[in-house]
Structures are given as structure tokens and as C-alpha cells.
Design a protein around this nucleic acid. Structure first.
Lengths: 143, 143
DNA sequence: CACGATGAGTTGTACTGTGCAACCAGTAGT
DNA sequence: ACTACTGGTTGCACAGTACAACTCATCGTG
């Protein structure tokens, strides 16, 4: 398992480089929406509403952190909390129209930036890369 | 460019998920060495010494941030600054033995964690994934 | 050679994101 | 009803970060 070991090393190193750069590029690209806010909004859109606890679990964040982020997003008018009739402890988080709108803009500009970076890639490579990333990240969900 | 577009979307999303989890797992895995410290030490080992400015550029960090990180690492005895005889503004950063040692330990534990996550992957997939990551991250260096 | 421009690094300051612990409120099991 | 659990908030402390202003060394040009 020599070559595989080297590959594992490279993967963790490159993932880390990426992580280091992600925030910087986010604040360059969309100073109005921090990386973490963008991520949370994106999750809300994708799932069409979810609980703060789910966000915390999915992104390995403390519930207090999510609570504060959500508070900020709500103050900014980007999300709204709806009480869950089935469980009065729970607030289901939903994007507002404003939230959906700003998320859309940011997504477009991000897609442009990422797309530029990936412009020379073949469709096959793109899909394979995407597949690998999903597979890597889904590990903690499956086991 | 429909499928490719979706792939780009997935790539940026999954990269972001990863970035969000990286710090959390780092502090779980090696509380004695923060993710950023680990990354910087790794870079020093790889390059066998470099300037603070290079670190800042490579990781998209402000030079003041790097300066403070390096100060902390030096206080901890993990790196040393060597004056550059050719340019007296420059300090070349080098790992100390202690730095190399702790980096080695952390690398082992990280490799174990990442390796566990990648255990089921074929060698071919690992290498292809690693290659994609390198290709993705090297974009800013080439263009 | 002197002077202005540039580059490496440090320090002051302020802010964001984060986790932990303590807490409150609602739910579920016995 | 009592207890255990779960979703969420708040108090607190701290790490990482950026920006701006600074010092000191280097390099080019008149």
C-alpha cells in the first residue's frame, strides 16, 4: 500500500490547502455573505427548510454557533423561523425571498469563479471529481 | 453544458462541506496543533524552509497572520528563524527537531483518520482523486 | 552617492467564528 | 408525576484573521 499511502497523503494535504483558501476567496467573492452563512443558506435551500440541529450535525458545528449564525441571518432578513406544530421545541428554518435572492446571486458569482477554474476540464473529469468529493464527504453519514 | 454545470455546483458544495468539517476534525484529532499550524509546519517540511511571505501567498493569508502564527510556533519551539545572509529583510523559517517530531506524530494520526475514511477506495480511485485535487488547487499558481 | 520606491516583517486594533458550559423549555418514558 | 432527553439560547473566553500603520533593508535611478 505504498502508492495508495502517498495518494492519501496528497488528498489530505490538498484538501487542507483548499480549506485554507476557501474563506479568503469567499470574502473576496461575496463580502456580503460569509462562507459559513452562504453554506447554511445553501443547505436550507437544498433541503427546503430544516432545523438548526441538523445544520450543526451536518457541518460539525456547535449548536450555539449555528444558533448565532441563524440569529444573524434572521436579523438580516434572509431566513425565517417557523414553529414546528408537531414539536414546540423545534423551529424550522426557511429561506425568505430576500435570502433566496441573495443566495442566488452569490451562487452565480461563485459558480463563475469555480467554473473558470474548471473551464478546461472535460465533463467526464468534472463528474468523476464531483463523485469522489461526494463519496469522501458522505463517509461520516454512512459510518 | 448542463451536466458539467451540475458537477461544478457539486464540487463547490462538497469542497465547502469539507472545509467546514476540516477544522472540527483537526481539533478533535490533534488539539495540540491547530489546523493552520499543522498546515504551515507541513509546508516548511515539504519545502525545507521558506519565507513567511511565501506561506502567506500560498495559503491566501495576510502576512500579519502568518507572522503571529510563526511567532507562536517559534515560542513553542517548533520552528526557528534563520536570517538570510543574502537579504537581511528575510528570515528563512525552518522546522526544529521538535517541530519535525510533532508534525510526524500528527501526520500519522491524520493519515490514519483519512486512511480509514478512504479504506474502501481502490488505489486507482485514490490516485485519480488526488490528481484532481492537485489539479484543482494548482490553478491559481498557473494562471 | 543620496533619495524615493518597493518589499519583508511586526505590532496595534477590531471583528468573526467558534466551542464549552450552564441554562430554559418542551417531549417522552416509566 | 418524576426523570431523562432533546432543541435551542446565552454567557464567556479564545483563536484566527484582516487592515492599517509602522520599521528596516534592498534596489534603482538621477
Amino acid at each position: 500500500m505504498r502508492a495508495a499511502d502517498r495518494a492519501v497523503e496528497t488528498i489530505q494535504h490538498e484538501m487542507t490547502v483548499f480549506a485554507r483558501r476557501a474563506r479568503a476567496s469567499a470574502s473576496r467573492l461575496h463580502p456580503e455573505l460569509s462562507l459559513v452563512s452562504y453554506t447554511l443558506l445553501g443547505h436550507l435551500e437544498e433541503r427546503d427548510g430544516c432545523r438548526a440541529t441538523d445544520l450543526a450535525a451536518h457541518y460539525a458545528l456547535d449548536k450555539s454557533t449555528v444558533s448565532r449564525q441563524v440569529t444573524a441571518l434572521e436579523r438580516a432578513g434572509l431566513v425565517e423561523r417557523r414553529p414546528d406544530p408537531a414539536d414546540h421545541r423545534v423551529q424550522v428554518l426557511h429561506l425568505t425571498d430576500a435570502g433566496r435572492s441573495i443566495l442566488g446571486q452569490v451562487t452565480v458569482s461563485r459558480r463563475a469563479a469555480v467554473g473558470e477554474r474548471l473551464a478546461e476540464w472535460s465533463e467526464e473529469d468534472l463528474e468523476r471529481f464531483a463523485g469522489y468529493l461526494v463519496r469522501y464527504n458522505s463517509w461520516s453519514r454512512s459510518g
